[in-house]
C-alpha cells in the first residue's frame, strides 16, 4: 500500500512540478478575471436603466426630415437626443409620449448641456401614411423645436435594426390599420451612444431625472 502510494511520487517529480505551475497559472488567471469583473462592476454607476458598460452605438443611417432634407447620424452627433418611434395615426400612446417629452424638455431648461445640445426626434415607422411634410406640423404642435423624420421601409430599417426597434402593421377594418411598435424613448449622447431606453409608462419627472444622472455620469469622464 505504502509502496504503491510512494512509487509515483518518487518516479515523477517533474510532472508534479508542472501541475503546480499550471494550478498557479489557473489561480492567477481566475484572480485577474475576478478583479476585472469587480472593476467593470464598479465602473457601472447606480443609475437605473443606464446601458453601461458597452452601450450600443448608432452607426450610419439616412432618413428624410420634415423639411425634405437628409437626416443622418451627423444630425445626432454633438447633441443629446431623445429619440422616439411612432406614427401619426396613433391617438393614444404617441401624442401622450410627445406631450410628456415636451414636459421633459421644459424641466431641463436649467440644464446647461441640454439647453445647448438637447433635441427631440420623432421617427415615423409608418412611411406609407406619414410623409415628411405631414410630420412637421405634427411634431411642431407639441413643440416648435421638435424634429421629425421618416424614410422608405429599407432606409428606415437601417436605423430601427440598430436599436432593436420593432414595428408591424396590424390590419383593421377596410383601409384602416394600426401598428404595433416599440414605444421606448432612447437617450442618445453626443457621441451617438445609446445610453438608455425608457419604456412605458412615460413620466416626465422620471425621464428628466434619468437624463440628469446620465449626463452627469458622461460629464465625469466616461
Amino acid at each position: 500500500m505504502g509502496v504503491r502510494y510512494n512509487a509515483p511520487m518518487t518516479s515523477s517529480p517533474p510532472r508534479s512540478q508542472s501541475n503546480a505551475v499550471l494550478a498557479l497559472l489557473a489561480f492567477a488567471a481566475l484572480s485577474a478575471g475576478l478583479l476585472f469583473a469587480v472593476w467593470k462592476t464598479e465602473q457601472r454607476p447606480d443609475i437605473p436603466g443606464l446601458l453601461w458598460p458597452d452601450p450600443p452605438m448608432i452607426g450610419s443611417f439616412s432618413l428624410t426630415d420634415a423639411d425634405g432634407k437628409a437626416y443622418t447620424e451627423a444630425q445626432l452627433r454633438g447633441h443629446w437626443t431623445f429619440l422616439f418611434f411612432g406614427f401619426t395615426h396613433c391617438p393614444d400612446v404617441c401624442p401622450g409620449t410627445l406631450a410628456v417629452l415636451k414636459q421633459v424638455t421644459g424641466r431641463l431648461q436649467d440644464h446647461p448641456a441640454f439647453r445647448a445640445q438637447g433635441q427631440v426626434l420623432f421617427v415615423s415607422v409608418d412611411p406609407a401614411r406619414d410623409t415628411p411634410a405631414m410630420l412637421g406640423p405634427y411634431v411642431r404642435y407639441f413643440d416648435p423645436g421638435f424634429k421629425a423624420a421618416t424614410a422608405s421601409e429599407d432606409a428606415l430599417s437601417g436605423l430601427t435594426r440598430q436599436l432593436g426597434v420593432i414595428y408591424a402593421k396590424v390590419p383593421g377594418s377596410g383601409e384602416d390599420y394600426t401598428m404595433d411598435h416599440s414605444a421606448s424613448i432612447f437617450i442618445v449622447d453626443p457621441q451617438l451612444r445609446v445610453l438608455s431606453a425608457i419604456g412605458l409608462p412615460h413620466d416626465a419627472a422620471l425621464i428628466a431625472a434619468r437624463f440628469r444622472a446620465i449626463a452627469a455620469f458622461v460629464a465625469s469622464g466616461s
Binding site: 400612446v93 396590424v170 384602416d176 404595433d180 411598435h181 416599440s182 414605444a183 412605458l200
Partner: peptide
C-alpha cells in the same frame, strides 16, 4: 364615422392596440 373600444397593451417596450 367610427368608434371602437381599444386597449393599449404594453410590455414596457412593445405596444399593441
Amino acid at each position: 364615422a367610427m368608434g371602437m373600444l381599444h386597449e393599449t397593451v404594453s410590455d414596457g417596450d412593445r405596444v399593441q392596440m
